[in-house]
């Protein structure tokens, strides 16, 4: 696979390590009354869609950016890539 890095262009997937569901960006509020249940979902539950999936990739043998890659799990087509930092900031 080739991943279009927003800063570095097309890079081979071998340069990256994979983490999974980009929902890991949405760390629950630790001060909320139901924090434990929310963290349980956050840590243990993942969607596993056949189709479009937003996921986290780490450019470990590159610039060490965390990326949010939108990939179709059926075709491996990559439709969108963003720096995770940008996504996280926007989420604020």
């Amino acid at each position: 696979m080739l991943i279009p890095h927003p800063l570095l262009g097309l890079r081979d997937a071998q340069e990256f390590t994979y983490l999974g569901d980009a929902n890991l960006l949405n760390r629950p509020d630790p001060t909320a009354p139901d924090a434990e249940a929310a963290f349980c979902d956050y840590v243990f539950l993942r969607d596993n869609p056949a189709g479009k999936h937003r996921e986290l990739w780490f450019h470990e043998q590159g610039d060490r950016s965390w990326l949010v890659v939108t990939r179709d799990t059926l075709t491996h087509e990559i439709s969108d890539v963003e720096l995770a930092t940008d996504v996280a900031r926007r989420g604020k």
Binding site: T17, L19, L25, F58, S65, W66, K92
Partner: peptide, 14 residues
Amino acid sequence: FQRMEFARQCLWPD
């Protein structure tokens, strides 16, 4: 190192 970068970029980018 990878997880610290995750915390820095993905959890607390500010």
